[in-house]
Design a binder for these strands. Structure first.
Lengths: 211, 211
DNA sequence: CGAATAGTGTCTTTTAGACAATATGTT
DNA sequence: AACATATTGTCTAAAAGACACTATTCG
């Protein structure tokens, strides 16, 4: 009988912050060795018979202190199988994304770092973030579950531009992103406008998910 | 301490057959319970510290009887985590693709079924094939490792058309596929022509990977 | 008004899609 | 010649990319 590999589920908990105008990823200092005190993605060992999304939820609530109701969606990314990625021994890491609704966050939360400038992390988590960002960029505007989870039920054109820039690395032209959004099923441009920024400027229009 | 889930690696071993003019997937009858005698994708339990590609190779050589030298490339597809997918208990299945070079096959091989009409398989393997086909279709002409592995060092326009039709479900116009292939890095159209079919017709031109 | 931000109209380029017409083999 | 297959040229439509110009709000 072959001895089985341990499986951990590591999560990119993502949240769009309208103030920072960026997509943030939740990280937390590790409580135990190895890498105690160092920042890491939230991760748990997959329990026997546990679904990946349930493990992801457990990681986000347990390791980041994010309430379960704040998790709006989740999905698979990729699997990392380098045998030396964990000094305790070979462990498979299945990476998932989870989107977090910032309006439902509790008091003391995790560290939220812009996905573009994540601090050095424990294990191979830097590599996981680096490898997964293009996958996330590809999902935006094409996977409605992910997009709606990240941006919420209502958002402005300006926020859409910021989120896209965070994930893809460059800022689309507003007219072009508008055309892309018009084609997203279930998304529609409303007649409303959001409040203008304190510095002034034309107030952005609001998009909303229907159904 | 949490009891860990077992991890199996199940492989879509793919091969392009110029005679059948289709992409074939290798399946073999199971030797043991459960589902003894029924056809299934080749799969093995992932050993501790084993890399996914190594497990995939082990599955293809061990379960399909394909020699290791015949495996030209491999890669990840997706993970299936339904707890009831294996009657023996919860098992995670990580699906990988592997391409097989038909010129290096040994004598008694597995059952090769067109990917478009796979017979009923054991476990949730029907679902794995069904869910992974669009992922494979998306990789063709965009992942050169996969494409070159599937079609070999040299192939004709007609074969390219057939392989694309097998994976995507509809046949591209030759002129349009030609333009796509012109843009694939490392692929170039040669001045050569293959032999014509017994039934006649203009002989197709040959494409080759450079470098 | 001027600075700051958002939105619109339009032009260009690229890519995808569709066919008709032509070329080159076998029987 | 009749048939079968492959290739090319070209036309159209859709998508992506890039800007200049206009609109709205705050100080």
């Amino acid at each position: 009988m072959i001895e089985s590999t341990l499986v951990s589920v590591d999560v990119l908990a993502l949240r769009f912050d309208p103030v920072a105008r960026a997509v943030l990823v939740g990280v937390a200092p590790r409580a135990f060795e190895p890498f105690a005190g160092e920042l890491a993605l939230p991760g748990v060992l997959l329990g026997k018979g546990e679904r990946l999304r349930d493990a992801a939820r457990r990681a986000v609530t347990g390791k980041l202190g994010v309430p379960a109701e704040a998790i709006s969606a989740s999905g698979q990314l990729s699997t990392f199988d380098e045998p030396s990625r964990d000094p305790r021994g070979p462990t498979l890491s299945i990476a998932l994304w989870a989107t977090v609704d910032p309006t439902r966050l509790a008091g003391d939360g995790p560290v939220w770092a812009p996905v573009t400038e994540v601090p050095p992390l424990a294990f191979d988590h830097d590599r996981i973030v680096r490898d997964c960002r293009p996958i996330l960029a590809d999902r935006l505007w094409r996977d409605t579950g992910f997009t709606a989870g990240l941006l919420g039920r209502e958002f402005t054109t300006a926020q859409a531009l910021d989120a896209t820039e965070s994930l893809t690395g460059d800022r689309p032209y507003p007219a072009n992103l508008g055309r892309i959004m018009e084609r997203v099923p279930g998304l529609e441009r409303t007649a409303q406008h959001a409040a203008a920024l304190p510095k002034g400027g034309r107030p952005p229009s609001v998009w909303r998910w229907v159904s």
